[in-house]
Computed example of a mutant assay.
Amino acid sequence: MANAQHIQRRSAHSSLLPAPARFIVGRDRRGSWIVQDRQGLVGGLFRNEAAALHFAAEECNHNPADICHAPEGVVLDLDGFPAASSNLH
Rank of each mutant, 00 (worst) to 15 (best):
72 E>A: 15
53 L>S: 11
76 L>M: 10
71 P>C: 07
67 I>L: 02
48 N>I: 11
44 G>C: 06
42 V>T: 12
67 I>H: 03
2 A>G: 15
32 S>K: 14
38 R>P: 01
54 H>P: 03
52 A>S: 09
43 G>K: 02
72 E>I: 13
34 I>A: 01
80 G>Q: 12
19 A>P: 00
45 L>M: 05
40 G>I: 04
30 R>Q: 07
48 N>W: 08
49 E>F: 13
81 F>H: 09
39 Q>W: 02
6 H>Y: 12
5 Q>A: 14
34 I>E: 00
70 A>F: 04
20 P>N: 00
4 A>K: 12
22 R>M: 01
80 G>E: 12
29 R>M: 05
88 L>D: 02
89 H>M: 07
59 E>F: 03
17 L>D: 00
5 Q>K: 14
38 R>H: 00
71 P>I: 08
50 A>E: 11
67 I>E: 04
89 H>I: 06
30 R>F: 04
61 N>R: 06
78 L>W: 08
42 V>L: 09
89 H>Y: 06
33 W>F: 15
37 D>C: 00
25 V>L: 05
57 A>Q: 08
71 P>V: 10
51 A>Q: 09
24 I>C: 03
6 H>S: 13
12 A>W: 09
4 A>V: 10
8 Q>E: 15
76 L>S: 11
77 D>W: 08
74 V>H: 13
61 N>T: 06
26 G>C: 05
60 C>L: 06
62 H>V: 00
79 D>A: 15
31 G>P: 07
87 N>W: 06
57 A>E: 08
42 V>Y: 09
52 A>Y: 11
83 A>S: 04
87 N>H: 09
88 L>S: 02
3 N>S: 13
82 P>Q: 11
38 R>G: 00
19 A>Y: 02
23 F>E: 00
73 G>Q: 13
53 L>W: 14
29 R>G: 05
88 L>W: 01
11 S>A: 11
76 L>E: 12
19 A>I: 01
81 F>K: 13
19 A>R: 06
83 A>W: 03
58 E>R: 06
70 A>K: 07
16 L>M: 02
87 N>K: 11
88 L>H: 03
15 S>G: 00
54 H>T: 12
48 N>D: 15
42 V>Q: 09
61 N>C: 06
53 L>G: 14
25 V>P: 08
65 A>P: 01
47 R>D: 10
61 N>K: 04
75 V>C: 14
70 A>C: 12
59 E>L: 10
87 N>T: 07
28 D>N: 05
75 V>Q: 15
78 L>R: 14
27 R>M: 13
87 N>Y: 06
63 N>C: 03
31 G>D: 10
73 G>L: 12
83 A>Q: 05
62 H>E: 03
74 V>R: 15
40 G>N: 01
55 F>Q: 10
44 G>I: 06
57 A>T: 09
87 N>I: 09
20 P>Q: 01
12 A>V: 11
1 M>F: 11
9 R>G: 14
87 N>Q: 10
77 D>K: 09
78 L>I: 13
87 N>M: 08
6 H>E: 09
2 A>D: 15
6 H>N: 12
